[in-house]
Design a protein around this nucleic acid. Sequence first.
DNA 1: CACCCTCCCTATCAACTGATAGGTTTTTTG
DNA 2: CAAAAAACCTATCAGTTGATAGGGAGGGTG
Lengths: 212, 212
Amino acid sequence: MKGILNMNHQLEHDRKTRQKIVKVARDLFMELGYRAVSTRRIADVCGITQPTLYHHFKNKKELYMEVLKSELLDMQTALDRIIKRFENHLEECLFQVTYYILINKPAGIGQMFHDIEKELGKEQQEEIKKRWIEAYQAPIASIFEKGIREGKLRNPAEFGSDPVLSSYLLLNLISSRNTDHPVPEPVAKAQARLYTNVLLYGLASPDEETKK
Amino acid sequence: MKGILNMNHQLEHDRKTRQKIVKVARDLFMELGYRAVSTRRIADVCGITQPTLYHHFKNKKELYMEVLKSELLDMQTALDRIIKRFENHLEECLFQVTYYILINKPAGIGQMFHDIEKELGKEQQEEIKKRWIEAYQAPIASIFEKGIREGKLRNPAEFGSDPVLSSYLLLNLISSRNTDHPVPEPVAKAQARLYTNVLLYGLASPDEETKK
DNA sequence: CACCCTCCCTATCAACTGATAGGTTTTTTG
DNA sequence: CAAAAAACCTATCAGTTGATAGGGAGGGTG
């Protein structure tokens, strides 16, 4: 009994250090990019030495994978919660999702894509892509799917859109370059409103489309 | 006279090597990113040695600046031409611009932004940002401006959009992550059509907005 | 022909990278 | 309490990076 408790003690210590490393690495990687962050820098911020990193992680890429996994898991949890909460109001749901991502992923999302594509091996890419779909694409696509089913959105067959494509459109709008990060809250709110408005209703003046 | 000719000969040789370096560096930087491309690699592809690079350029960043300038200048020329050609047809104009960027900037545009933000000094960023506005934002914004003047687009005051913001929206849509580069021509065409359609008319079913 | 300037080379540098070897300290186990 | 395992350290490695010094070739100029 005492053995188990003590073992837990040690394991917990290990777990804490590991978590700290992941947390620090996450902040640095997301802000500066994979290549721009050295293992020494991560270790310094953590208050440990660089070789100690290699006691907890096989190598830099594996640490980065861990960072991505935690990042994506958090996002998935958050988006699922938001979508469930606003599931009966398409427009508000889209807005809330947009707003959340805008607030919580300042420069991170574009950076992430860059690094996944350029720095990871093919098999690692596959794994992260799978998790990225679970975290971002699938939840958002589910919103559009519901909208199409209920006739609130255009027929994909006519317009060339579909739930998955639409989710990419929204995400591309969000990962924008026009603002300096981080964005203050009211600005983010206005931005999120603009993005969802444009995505739903377009920029053309209301009487223009009927002429088409 | 002969002296001038001969001097031109030598100058031209220098110019040719310089251009070759810029061309090679441009391809590599745009595909792989600034940090992932070493000066040695650029030199190898050019068929020269690495120190020779430093005879033509002060350092790596200056070479990258040259690459960005040529890249942006080409884009500006192309977009201005397209816009002038289709200036009396808003929708087609947007489509052509979107299509052109989609075809000619496969992975480059996102990469570019990443590197400008992360690898350049502040003053260099300012200079490139200025040129980027001339090359991308201003031309595209002029399309939207005209559309607003002619009443074909929504009133920015009501919708929260304006020509500059709208140009960012389009560019964000274009620099997408959903496709593997490079994109075959017909796919790019369909994509460009979808982007402009969504941007102009939105995803909501046509009778939805009037209810609002 | 002698001089020089331009272009490009070889050789080399210091800094930094990710990663490993091996010892030391602390905690858990039998 | 001794053995062993875990966590972290110091010291060090080889490879790559951007960048510089200095020499050689070759045409251009006096």
